[in-house]
Nucleic acid binder design. Structure first.
Lengths: 156, 156
DNA sequence: TATTGTTATACTCTATAACTATA
DNA sequence: TATAGTTATAGAGTATAACAATA
């Protein structure tokens, strides 16, 4: 008559993660940290009715005026069909514009409008503040080091 | 007659990200790096027909045998309703079991089965290999440092 | 025939409200 | 009435195939 399982006292598991393999995986720590930063940014951008991807799009367009949608898709690490509603939204709000390319009438050049540039300038501050706040446990030196290590990983 | 926009040469934008605000944001680097690690792990787990969250669940159950579903939800940083199909899948494959709690018949204690424990042991190796491969740009010292910095961020 | 952007579609992830069965 | 688990549902995010216009 082997005793089947017994339920443990729930109060003994404040946050059950405990210590194990997961805590030694960079991928796991990366996901938890990324989630935290992302949620902070989402909350701050919500008053502008913008998502992080839309902010990133504005920043990329600003740095690469006239780029094509396929380029924007690659830069955002998303598929071309996902660019359509994203750009539609930015265009509806007159933050960006699609301009038919003269040499190749299939494609568009994408540009920021003046209000788009102005808003981006404001959003940059918001994003930097968010970044700081969500990494307040680190000092300046640690922050720069972390950025260097992360960049090394994702830039092949 | 201000010249309207001109399309830039697409070949001049290999990967349009360029350099700007985004590159200075830890949140952005975090997202790119996390995406890379996640995709590597997803690919490696696909032959087991498992998702990263299911692997994490197995690891958490292993470390906290008998925990309740609400605890598992908190540990995975997901909502209780999302635990249901996840656990159903693990139970269908007899990797984990729900055991009715005697003192409180509303709740279950969750446990790994023997095969679940065996599989987890194998998955741990897979996950560690994946972690290494996707961070091959870093040496051992950098890897430990990165893990320390990330843990500092997500553990409040 | 190939390419740019688009539509349609589907699958996952995530979040919330409402239900059941116990307490 | 409150709680654990569940159901139903809806919204994002993501990915693929197929189409129109253009090359």
């Amino acid at each position: 008559m082997a005793k089947p399982a017994q339920t443990v006292d729930a109060t003994s598991i404040p946050i059950p993660a405990g210590e194990g393999v997961l805590e030694d995986l960079i991928g796991y720590a990366l996901r938890r940290a990324q989630l935290k930063l992302f949620q902070n940014l989402i909350a701050r951008l919500s008053s502008y009715d913008l998502r992080p991807a839309q902010f990133s799009a504005l920043a990329i367009i600003d740095q690469n005026p006239g780029l094509m949608q396929a380029d924007l898709a690659r830069a955002l690490a998303i598929e071309p069909p996902q660019v359509v509603p994203l750009l539609n939204k930015l265009e509806e709000r007159t933050l960006a514009v699609r301009v038919r390319s003269k040499p190749d009438k299939r494609s568009y050049g994408i540009y920021l409008s003046k209000p788009g540039e102005a808003l981006l300038k404001e959003l940059k501050k918001i994003a930097c503040e968010s970044d700081r706040e969500a990494t307040a446990q680190l000092n300046e030196e640690e922050r720069e080091l972390l950025l260097k290590l992360l960049t090394k990983i994702y830039k092949e």
